[in-house]
């Protein structure tokens, strides 16, 4: 089963770290990502650029409005996502508890939703309309 892990981090705390501290932490994170890859648990993932480069789209009065900045103004920002292949929730918790990223901000673990049925139903509706 796939679990999407949203990794948050505190931008202010990150800025206070020295370069060597940042490097040491990044090295640990990447090394653990490699462990996950090697064991077949890393099903994908991307780091995100800073929240200052975020754009938010919203549906507003019948059209899309574009605003600068992240959707939620919180102290902790979404720093990256990791798609994890795990047997069940306990396995996912066990794998992500060892990820060094958790020491710099929380991980939110969300089971991937299986939309196969919804996609199939939607395809039927759309082809019926043709």
């Amino acid at each position: 089963m796939k679990y999407i892990c949203l990794g948050y981090y505190d931008e202010k705390r990150w800025e206070m770290l020295s370069e060597s501290e940042r490097n040491a932490w990044m090295d640990e994170c990447f090394a653990y990502d490699d462990v996950l890859r090697k064991n077949g648990h890393f099903a994908g993932g991307e780091a995100l650029q800073g929240a200052q480069n975020a754009t938010t789209l919203r549906w507003n009065n019948g059209k899309v409005s574009i605003t600068d900045g992240p959707f939620a103004e919180t102290r902790e920002q979404l720093g990256g996502i990791l798609i994890l292949e795990a047997d069940d929730l306990n396995h996912a918790i066990q794998l992500m508890s060892k990820h060094p990223g958790v020491r710099n901000g929380p991980f939110e673990i969300r089971p991937a939703a299986d939309l196969t049925e919804m996609v199939r139903a939607s395809e039927q509706r759309r082809s019926a309309r043709k």
């Binding site: 089963m1 047997d87 069940d88 929730l89 306990n90 396995h91 918790i93 066990q94 089971p111």
Partner: peptide
């Protein structure tokens, strides 16, 4: 059911 919380006694480390 949906998050697949397993039906098990946790492993010794947990």
């Amino acid at each position: 059911r949906d998050a697949r919380i397993p039906y098990e006694v946790p492993s010794p480390d947990a």
